[in-house]
Amino acid sequence: MTKIENIEKILKTVEIHERIVRKSTEIDNATKPYFLELSKFTKECLTNESKVSKLNSSQIKSLENELLIYWNETISLETEKFWTEIVTEKLDVQRKEPLKFALDKNRFRNVEQGIGARKYWNEIKTIESVKDKFSITDILKIDQIIAEDENKRIGILKKCLAKRVIPKSQYLKFGECMAYFTNCGLFNKYMTEKEVDELHEIWRNFKS
């Protein structure tokens, strides 16, 4: 691929990125300006003749990688939409897939990916391109990984609630579990409102 072809590919990727970000219901309003500023910066670097002439292949690749970080690291319906459009446009853009990492390691790389999977997987797994990519066995395994992730997290929260203390070694994990249950709207499934209030009190009173 020539330098010009590579730049054209990235600019088309930017168009898809911008279109989905502007219409997004999954990306919060505080984050959207950052993503749009990133695409503005990328376009400026790749359309300004004086800047383009100074860019080498590594610098161009860095611009592409920066643009793709979110789409490579998240699990969501809009992420699948982004990559579907990339495929439809026949753009030679390499994808890193958190779900394949989860299948290989039996866990999610981080809590954000766990949250995304818990919120969106039931819909994602009905998408034709996803069903083409993952076997029935894979889909069932991801179901299981999500269920086990949820069970481990509620186990940590209930243990802290029972002892009314957060062990120092579990503090970061506790915070991740609280974020997971808040973002996925799962507290009502396992706890009373009083118990949730007690968890927040334990969190506030934690002494390092």
Rank of each mutant, 00 (worst) to 15 (best):
V93K: 08
K40Y: 11
F181D: 00
V196K: 08
S62W: 08
L99K: 03
K51I: 10
N183I: 04
G116M: 06
D138N: 05
K96F: 13
K163N: 08
L199R: 04
T182L: 10
G185R: 03
K168M: 06
C177W: 01
N205L: 12
V93L: 11
D138T: 04
Q94M: 14
I139L: 05
K207F: 08
I20P: 08
V111Y: 05
R153P: 00
M178D: 02
S57K: 13
W71G: 10
G175S: 07
S169Y: 02
E37T: 13
L46F: 05
Q59C: 11
V130G: 02
E78G: 09
K158G: 00
I69V: 09
I7P: 11
E15S: 12
E193F: 06
E26H: 09
L46G: 04
K168P: 04
V87P: 07
V93N: 09
P98Y: 08
S62D: 15
V52P: 06
S39V: 10
S53V: 09
V21I: 13
L68F: 05
C184N: 05
E18M: 07
W203L: 15
T126P: 02
V130S: 04
K141F: 04
K207V: 14
L186F: 06
E5N: 14
E193K: 12
K32H: 04
L140M: 07
C184E: 01
L68G: 04
E66C: 12
S50H: 11
E18W: 03
S62T: 12
L172S: 06
L157S: 06
I86A: 05
I4Q: 15
